[in-house]
Amino acid sequence: MYLLLFHIQNITILFWQLLRRTFSKPFYWRDLLFEMDSLGFASLPITILTGIFLGLVLTLQAAIGVHKIGAVSLVPRAITISLIREIGPVVGSLMIAGRVGSGITSQIGSMKVTYQLDAMRVLGTDPLRKLILPKFLAITIMLPLLIILLCFSGLVSAYFLASVNLNIGAVFFWNEVLRGIKFLDLINNITKSLVFGGIIGLFGNYFGLEVEGGTEGVGRATTTSVIVIFISILAADFILTKIFYEILK
């Protein structure tokens, strides 16, 4: 319990330090772009694949549920709402966290145990500015974009399955999708992925910086980091869903 408070305090301090560095010079634009590429664009395949399979599964589920009562026409809207409000951001963030969160922790962690972070400080550069902040910002910015892409690819795959299996036409399907998307759902979607991206960036970096005990330590920290990120994403999802539910009411 004491340890938990200790970590929460440290993470808050790290967050504050990053925030202060975001709005002061020098700001490493090039490193930010580099990280957006390597953490963001490089996650495209995993994002699109996740989206496709989510779309397929959701369509099947909806079809099973709706077939009995003969309300096949509700399928597109049901898929759209669950994909955009809930399933897309959560499952997508978990998938991307598995890649990006573990990547950040293991990179920063191994730089720490081989004294590269110290070497950087000795050479006059602040590793929080040059390494940590760009990673944090990059995944926070890129995750919402990735999730929107994921939702879109999910809808495309859902459309294909629905048109083959349920005989739903293209015009009807996409019309229903557009009518299903509420402005607030989009805000919901983007807010969630922003927060989840922040969680991945902050915790991934934090556990990397905390590594102790050589290469083994890096392995252990990476596992811890991914687990903590997963649970935090689910917890944050609960809180955010609750907030949006209250707003909608």
């Binding site: 730089m111 081989t114 004294y115 590269q116 110290d118 070497a119 400080r121 000795v122 006059g124």
Partner: peptide
Amino acid sequence: NEDGWFEVRRKIGMVFQEGALFD
């Protein structure tokens, strides 16, 4: 503080155990 140290470290070279090159 750290900013003060940045100034001092400019005049010091450090070779870490194993080199600590940025890999």
